[in-house]
Design a protein around this nucleic acid. Sequence first.
RNA 1: CGGGCUGUGGCGCAGUUGGUAGCGCGCUUCGUUCGGGACGAAGAGGCCGUGAGUUCGAAUCUCGCCAGCCCGACCA
Length: 423
Amino acid sequence: MKYSKLFSKTNKTAPADADCINAKYLVQGGFVDQEMAGVYTWLPFGLRVLHKVENIVREEMNVLDAQEIFMPCLQPREYWETTKRWDSVDILFKIKSQTEKDYALGATHEEVVTPLAQKFIQSYKDLPFATYQINTKFRDELRAKSGVLRGREFRMKDMYSFHTNLEDLNEFYARALQSYLKVFSRCGLQVKAVEASGGIFTQNQSHEFQALTSAGEDLIIACEKCEFGQNSEVATLNEGDKCPKCGGVLNKVKGIEVGNIFNLGTKYTDAFDVNFTDENGEQKKVLMGCYGIGTSRLVGAIVETFSDDKGIIWPKSVAPFQIHLVSLGSKDATVVEQVNSTASSLHDELESAGIEVLWDDRSDISAGAKFADVDLIGIPLRLVVSEKTLRENSVEWKERNSAEAKLILSVDVIESIKSFLRS
RNA sequence: CGGGCUGUGGCGCAGUUGGUAGCGCGCUUCGUUCGGGACGAAGAGGCCGUGAGUUCGAAUCUCGCCAGCCCGACCA
């Protein structure tokens, strides 16, 4: 992609009202645009990152044999009355049609997925199964804040599993927990699965996934050695106590909640009366679990975790592009032509090799301005083609998380890139 | 929803005791530059958040409303 064709732009000055790193750099770098408090447009750069994160999530859910669907955000009041959540869930957006019918905007999808599953569950032979979607959620938060970390409209992957018995639910729950840890580690994050309260979802077992970063809002009592952790909301232990699992010291740390999983039991299948016929011909209640990952929040958590004073430093797995190619100008028109044709053929060669490249081909801007944009946007690898590199038959190579630049012979560039991207 | 701060070109800001709006960045054109946000010249762009009031006259004073942000309560 050529930078000069991009309609969205970076900004030299950070927004004045940014309260945290993700709000600052995502807006300044042209990843998102704020429409109102807690509501953002995802611009080309930002959407590429969001899609990468969501594809990682999608791949890992597919490994669990969960099947992707897409459910409506517009939901009838009756479903929410059935679960007695129409009045009790205060963050629910409620709207009226022209004919005065009441609807909810989906804050979560138990009210849709449970009656949906009912239509397909008759016998124990239809179970177990899991289904998920990646969709927009609406929550009427009293106070939206912290950039994309707490919005009123946000992206979320939500998965629901259906089982004949508790052992089976527990087994899937445990596998989902491991999948979640894999998703977060593929996004480059250090995440702990901590015991938590079920909130509006359930009184049963639940885990939160906390990305450990000083920018976090949640306080976690976490073992410094093993995976053990508890949300301080429900913690029975204190800082300095010994870990009940491994004996290590417990610390109080901050985290951003990027996911959660709940054992729902029969809460929703009771409400909608979802039964199956077992091997003995008896009617039994279906058991459910639900599993969420805030994908737009996850993007924010990644920015909070990986940045410096110049901008974002994306992990390779979620960067908007793999390569940021920069061509520099010269006073000599012939050199400019050579630089541009070299950069252009490198750009085409990379794209045809399936490597995502952003080429800053702008001719009316200084080298310094281009480099500042590279740092702000945070693509892992910068390549420069200029009069200098042309003389050496080389391309300059600089990684975003390193201060050093080196020259690579042009003939070796593609291979070097491929091995860099594999590492 | 309580308490506070702030609304002035795309972004960041200034605007004195009320007299009809300015700076930096960005943008356009021309020329010069060409490896860490270049320089000169000439331009374009604003119902000063919004409504009412006070006044000969309001960006400026008064009141209401709206929006953004912060603290709190609440929450993925």
